[in-house]
Amino acid sequence: MTTVPATPAARVDPLAPARLGPITLRNRIIKAATFEGLTPKGLVTDKLIEFHRRPAAGGVGMTTVAYCAVAPEGRTAPGQIYWRDEAMPGLRKLTDAVHAEGAAVSAQIGHAGPVAAAKYLGMSALAPSRGFRLTSQNFTTPATTADIARITRAHAEAARRAVEAGFDAVELHFGHNYLISSFLSPRVNKRKDDYGGSLENRARFAREAARAVRDAVGDKIAILAKLNMDDGVPGGFWLDEAIRVARWLEADGSLDALELTAGSSLLNPMYLFKGDAPIREFAAAMPQPTKLGVQLLGKHLLREYPYRDAYLLEDAKQIRAQVAMPLVLLGGVTNKAVMDQAMAEGFEFVAVARALLRDPDMVNKIRADERTRSLCNHCNKCMTAIYGGTHCVLKAA
């Protein structure tokens, strides 16, 4: 029987406090995870703390630290944080700084899998099946069942460490063809065992990881998952399967909310972002051989999609109609009108990324004047800055 969420009886104010699992946020606006590029040694820096303190001071309900890998080989860049003893003091300092501004803080946890910077890490890029990556010019290594079990345990350990470091929530990365998302994708997953073939098998890793995290932390923190609705490639994971996976995750009771996303960092990265595809800037920022891959294949890999506000809403509404659990709307949330629209459509939270890079004070400005609109023009050049410190290239630091 289809579960249909109740129609809200009254207007929901996105600027009012809201419950998210065991925690209460001061409003329904979440700073989405955007890789910061501010941890050159894989440890928290003062710049990373300031990166998250600013939107916290600017009024968001919660900011999300990205990307905290659950294993060393699960990083997309050599300098990314992964969960280990050395990282804990800095992470505690970061959470304290965000809390001092009145906001909550979440850690995005996951394993990059086929998207990992394997060549620069000196490690194998794990994937469901063997495959060739065009941009980095290397093959992925099929994950064994022992790898899957190890990485599932690593998610649980990362969540336990997040509690110790003072985080209010964790966000499990089930999107963009990172490892667990790649298992969901029939385009990438060609396995013949219990983790391949049918959708039930392809979703097994995601469900086991979510259950392991819930069993590890209980209700000490909120647990979200970022779930792809559409890989944006022929033969990939698509909305009809995403609806079924969302319903299974809801039935499992492991999550407090789903954040709905799209696109493949492996095969079609611009499908999520919409707007301009700054190919020249991307190539300039990349080391070899990735630079050459972007120069040769950029027009095919970095396709442009027209931008519009709330561009994931129509797909997300189809999942909203099938599950009752809290959902986070991502994509083109640039002003109060879009936030109100999301609430009217039954979404409990919105996630904002580029608009907050442009103006970390956006939420406070909206509170003061509801006509405020982000000045982000979706040029996407901020994406090319990630390895030297993510920022909006159109404004002074």
Rank of each mutant, 00 (worst) to 15 (best):
L394H: 15
P89K: 07
D361N: 15
A212V: 08
T135P: 05
S265C: 08
A324Y: 04
N335G: 14
Q295M: 10
V115Q: 07
A397T: 14
L357W: 04
V393I: 15
P114V: 11
I243F: 01
L356W: 00
A57I: 04
G346T: 03
P234I: 06
V350D: 03
I243H: 00
M362Y: 09
C379F: 11
V4P: 05
P5W: 02
V188E: 11
E164T: 11
V70S: 07
W238T: 02
A125S: 13
F51H: 14
T24I: 13
A285V: 09
R371N: 15
N27S: 12
R84Q: 08
I148V: 05
L356N: 03
L330F: 09
L249P: 00
A355L: 15
G253N: 06
E36P: 05
V393Q: 05
L297Y: 13
A10C: 03
C382Q: 04
D219G: 15
L260M: 10
D252S: 08
N364A: 08
T63Q: 05
R244D: 13
L272I: 13
D194R: 06
M383N: 12
H173T: 12
A16K: 10
E314S: 13
S265K: 01
L227Y: 08
C376V: 03
F282P: 00
P326H: 12
R354N: 15
G79K: 04
A342L: 02
A125D: 01
A33R: 00
A18T: 03
R130P: 00
C376P: 05
K47A: 15
A32E: 12
A116I: 02
M62N: 07
P89G: 02
A337F: 05
T2M: 14
W238A: 08
E304H: 13
L199E: 00
P5H: 04
F282Y: 06
A246E: 11
E157C: 14
V213D: 01
R373N: 10
V98L: 06
P14R: 02
N268T: 05
P360D: 14
D252Q: 04
A107W: 04
L375M: 14
T7L: 11
L25R: 04
A107T: 06
R150S: 10
D315E: 10
R161H: 11
V333N: 03
